[in-house]
Design a protein around this nucleic acid. Structure first.
Length: 490
RNA sequence: GGCCUUUUCGUCUAGUGGUUAGGACGGGUGAUUCUCAGUCAUCAAACAGGGGUUCGAUCCCCCUAAGGGCUACCA
């Protein structure tokens, strides 16, 4: 069997989005799992929609996620160039070849006429599509058009009857009546090819063996099959991937939340989480395992386990994956990836000192279990910085059914106990604090919550003893003092 | 409208002509003798509907319904 060659062929008309990434990832994994080649080809054939930052975004996306390619723009191989805009002569040549063979024709209809025709068809509920007016123009009619200076397009001469069918590796046999097909455009009047022409010419010339693309392409695949036939080429295996939907079952779009890949990075997602989650959109390994690294996926990915039905993009599960991968990080790695957030909040300096780094090393374990997104870190351990915390939930310092005066007494007693922080074992100190429940006839929460608020400023925090130990006796007691004073004043 | 296509817990999915239809996220409950998170345990939750074929259908066939895609000189 020939070496497997697949490609991802984005068009630089916008930022890379989740759907595109899924296609790229599946192609990449399919190639890696089978010792094949993965090619990146830029389909910049739409001049009107070309967008400047798009190309860089494609590179950034691949780099961030660790998806490499074997042939493409920067890493040119035997089939260069990999920008379709640099292959214009090729498409023109092949389009004209089809005209010579009588499989395509020049069409002189301009946009205005096409629009009128479409409007008429809609109003009269006729079948939509080009009416093939130029399909059988006489030589003299053609000459007239040329004389008028009309720049023609080249259209494919689709068969009027019969059926076209192909085997999709995922969907099975698909068959359509040729009567439903269109005389689609191959070469536009600006000299650029349409997707239909360019992708066939390039896939053939580049030796592509499998085309993995989204299901939205299924309906134009018969056209492509016919084109291959007209050229006398064998077509690659088609594998149409299920669509990716938003939570309401509609095609995933901005209103569902983030959809651009680099937006996820900005929002604090890890590449590992994105890769893992995306790999499960329409694919599964078995009935039990679903946590996979990229390198594992490169070994186990199997095209036969891709399913047909559309998949909903579930942000909640993505977040779970993100938390999972955050927990898998070593402390050093965790500090590395969260440092920008601490800098942004001015909790550490732009060039952190050794002391600051040591401090981060101490507090990192406190935040690791509690983070879901990278940006959560400052929220979780922000109170560790500075002399006093910001009191966010001060009211909670007075537990239900407990008098404010009692809270002052509890904190004062606790302070006495915590004077020995570091001198006695944590569990002994905790035991002593716990014994206060008997003295005041309250539940444990009524002892620990006031301490928590006094020290952390919130009613949700990491465990108290690790926190107090890092803070040290002095700062711990100062924070308790301030809380006591504040209570006395109110 | 036409053509193509899909349908297992809310979501991602596994699965078989005979199963207690399995896992994960999310949700509920409990444990971790301080909250939150984490971890562990546990519970609820699905074969779209109707006809066939068959001793037996979630699984095979047909119809219906609902969803999705395409219907550009865009990809």
């Amino acid at each position: 069997m020939d070496k497997i060659r697949v490609r991802y062929a984005p068009s630089p008309t916008g930022y890379q989005h989740i759907g595109g990434l899924r296609t790229a990832l599946f192609n990449y994994l399919f190639a890696r799992a089978n010792g094949g080649d993965f090619i990146l080809r830029i389909e910049d054939t739409d001049q009107t929609r070309y967008f400047d930052g798009a190309l860089q975004d494609i590179f950034d996306t691949f780099n961030w996620l660790g998806i490499g390619y074997d042939e493409g723009p920067v890493k040119e191989g035997a089939h260069k160039p990999y920008f379709q805009s640099q292959r214009l002569e090729l498409y023109k040549k092949y389009a004209e070849l089809l005209v010579e063979r009588g499989a395509a024709y020049y069409c002189y209809c301009d946009g205005e006429r096409l629009e009128q025709m479409k409007k008429y068809q809609e109003e009269n509920k006729l079948q939509q599509g080009y009416d093939r007016r130029c399909r059988d123009l006489s030589e003299s009619e053609k000459a007239d058009m040329i004389k008028k200076g009309v720049t023609p397009v080249i259209r494919f001469k689709a068969p009027l009857e019969g059926k076209t069918k192909f085997e999709d590796k995922i969907l099975g046999t698909i068959e359509v009546d040729n009567s439903t097909l269109q005389d689609f455009v191959l070469l536009k009047s600006d000299g650029f090819p349409t997707y239909h022409l360019a992708n066939i010419v390039d896939d053939h010339l580049m030796g592509i063996t499998h085309v993995l693309r989204a299901q939205e392409w299924v309906s134009s695949t018969p056209n492509h099959v016919l084109l291959y036939k007209a050229f006398g080429w064998e077509h690659p295996q088609f594998c149409h991937l299920p669509m990716v939907m938003g939570e309401d079952g509609q095609k995933l779009s901005k209103r569902h939340g983030a959809t651009q890949v680099m937006e996820f990075r900005k929002n604090g997602y890890l590449p590992e989480a994105i890769i893992n989650f995306i790999s499960l959109l329409g694919w599964s390994y078995n009935d039990a395992d679903e946590v996979f690294s990229l390198s594992e996926l490169e070994k186990i990915f199997n095209i036969d386990r891709i399913n047909k039905s559309p998949a909903v993009f579930n942000y909640a599960k993505l977040k779970w994956f993100n938390g999972l991968y955050i927990r898998k990080k070593t402390i050093d790695e965790l500090i590395d990836i969260t440092l920008p957030y601490f800098k942004e909040k001015k909790l550490v300096s732009d060039s952190p000192t050794d002391e600051e780094m040591r401090f981060l090393t101490k507090i990192a374990p406190l935040m690791q279990d509690r983070m879901e997104l990278l940006g959560d870190c400052t929220e979780i351990v922000g109170f560790m910085f500075g002399e006093y915390p910001e009191y966010k939930t001060w009211e909670a310092i007075i537990p239900k059914k407990v008098e404010p005066k009692t809270v002052i007494d509890i904190l004062t007693d606790s302070k006495e106990i915590l004077k020995n922080l570091g001198k006695e074992k944590d569990e002994d100190l905790q035991h002593k604090l716990y014994s206060l429940t008997e003295k005041y006839g309250v539940k444990a929460g009524a002892i620990f919550m006031p301490i928590r608020i006094a020290i952390t400023g919130t009613n949700k925090s990491p465990e108290l003893f690790p926190v107090m130990n890092i803070l040290g006796v002095e700062r711990t007691l100062k924070r308790m003092d301030r809380a006591i004073e504040t209570l006395k004043r109110s």
